[in-house]
Simulated assay, not measured.
Amino acid sequence: MSAWPKLDYAADKGTVETLHLLLQLIGKLPVRLHPWINHGWHVALRLTPSGAVTRSLPAGARYFAVELDFLEGAIKVDCGNGFQSVLPVAGKTIAKVSRELGSLLADLGLPAPLHGAPNELPDPIPFAEDERPREWDADAARRLHEAFLCADRNFNLFRSLYLGKSSPSHLFWGSFDLAVTRFSGRGAPAHSGGVPNLPDSVTREAYSHEVISAGFWPGGGGFDEAAFYAYAYPTPAGLADQDVEPDAAFWKAELGEFILPYAAVREAADPDFEVQRFLNSTFVAAGGLLEWPQGLVIDPPPSVGRPPHSA
């Protein structure tokens, strides 16, 4: 049996959408409490063995972090003094979770700027007003978390092979994708913006410099199944015509990205190897057309716990 779990976006869509909105809710905290870090990296969440967590957030002289636990169906608030408060979320509306989380944070003497509405979604409903019933399938949440962890493992390896500027492997709650991004060090043309319910200034800062980015998302947003993706900004002429690996990968013109269906990865004899083929071949294709600086990719991979080229 594959260590990569089976995903079925059509069957699990309700739970995927619930997870997405809950991550959007806790994602508002670093937006409003943490200093801006280049390309919006401060708002992205980090995967944990059980879910996804914010950065440490300042609260006067105190610090706290908020995690969505996929496995327990709960939001956990870690106050940094050994005290953790748990708020069950399974089966609740987003409005109810928003009210209860706001009250919980206030009772702990922590800031709770949870107002507003989701980003990067069409026709968003403010959190406080979203009383629509929400699905929660514990098995679907567990499988999606396992898939994110498999992708994270591969993205961390891919990141370790690049000596230039690279983002961490982190989860963007707006588009609900885990991503890792490499930079050439050169500036890029101003982005046109136009992302639904996201200020153009945010998009333009995110793409202020040349990038080759890869990621994983559970489905939706133009491709209704779980998949890996890769793209470059700016998109060089001829990128769509480049040969990339493995054979299951293809160019999705509507998205302007290469796509590798998750199902093809899971069914492969060596899923991790297939992901690395995809990440490396798409990077080589885009980097070659954009004439990125040479000598920044490490080969062979470094040992765990040892700097590259060390004795």
Score class of each variant (00 low, 15 high):
His20Ala: 01
Ala74Gly: 07
Ala52Gln: 01
Asp78Gln: 08
Ala65Lys: 14
Ala52Met: 02
Asp69Thr: 00
Pro88Gly: 06
Gly27Ala: 07
Lys6Phe: 11
Ala59Thr: 09
Val77Asp: 09
Ala10Asp: 11
Asn81Ala: 13
Leu19Phe: 07
Glu67Met: 02
Tyr63Trp: 13
Gly51Glu: 12
His39Met: 12
Leu29Gly: 04
Ser50Ile: 11
Thr15Pro: 04
Ile26Val: 14
Ala59Gln: 04
Trp41Asp: 12
His20Trp: 14
Lys6Ser: 15
Gly82Gln: 03
Glu67Ser: 04
Val89Trp: 02
Gly80Leu: 10
Asp8Phe: 06
Leu25Thr: 05
Gly14Ile: 04
Gly51Asp: 10
Leu25His: 04
Leu68Glu: 03
Gly40Leu: 06
Gly80Ala: 09
Leu21Tyr: 10
Leu33Trp: 03
His20Cys: 00
Leu29Trp: 02
Glu72Asn: 04
Glu17Asn: 11
Gly82Asn: 03
Cys79Pro: 00
Arg62Val: 03
Gly60Asp: 04
Ala59Asp: 00
Gly51Arg: 02
His34Met: 12
Ala10Tyr: 05
Leu87Trp: 07
Pro35Tyr: 08
Leu87Tyr: 06
Thr18His: 06
Val66Cys: 09
Pro49Trp: 05
Gly51Cys: 08
Lys6Tyr: 11
Tyr63Thr: 15
Ala74Tyr: 04
Asp78Lys: 06
Leu23Ile: 01
Gly51Val: 09
Asp78Thr: 08
Ala10Met: 07
Phe64Gln: 03
Leu33Ile: 05
His42Ile: 02
Lys6Val: 13
Phe64Val: 08
Arg55Phe: 10
Leu33Gln: 07
Ala90Thr: 07
Arg55Tyr: 06
Ala11Trp: 05
Gly14Ala: 11
Asp78Trp: 08
Pro35Glu: 11
Leu7Asn: 10
Leu29Phe: 04
Leu29His: 02
Val43Thr: 14
Pro58Asn: 07
Leu33Met: 06
His39Leu: 12
Leu87Asn: 06
Gln24Ile: 10
Pro49His: 01
Trp36Ile: 12
Ala90Asp: 10
Val53Met: 09
Gln84Met: 13
Asp69Gln: 03
Gly51Asn: 05
Ser56Ile: 07
Val86Glu: 08
Leu68Arg: 00
Thr18Ile: 05
Leu23Glu: 09
Leu87Thr: 06
Ala44Cys: 12
His42Cys: 04
Ile75Ser: 01
Leu33Thr: 04
Ser56Met: 13
Val89Phe: 02
Glu17Cys: 03
Phe64Ile: 09
Glu17Val: 11
Val43Ala: 13
Leu68Cys: 04
Gly40Tyr: 02
Ser56Thr: 12
Val31Ile: 13
Lys76Gln: 13
Asn38Leu: 13
Phe83Lys: 14
Ile37Gly: 09
Ala44Gly: 05
Cys79Gln: 12
Tyr63Leu: 15
Trp36Glu: 13
Gly73Cys: 05
Gln24Cys: 10
Asp78Phe: 12
Leu21Gln: 12
Gly51Leu: 08
Glu67Phe: 01
Ala74Pro: 05
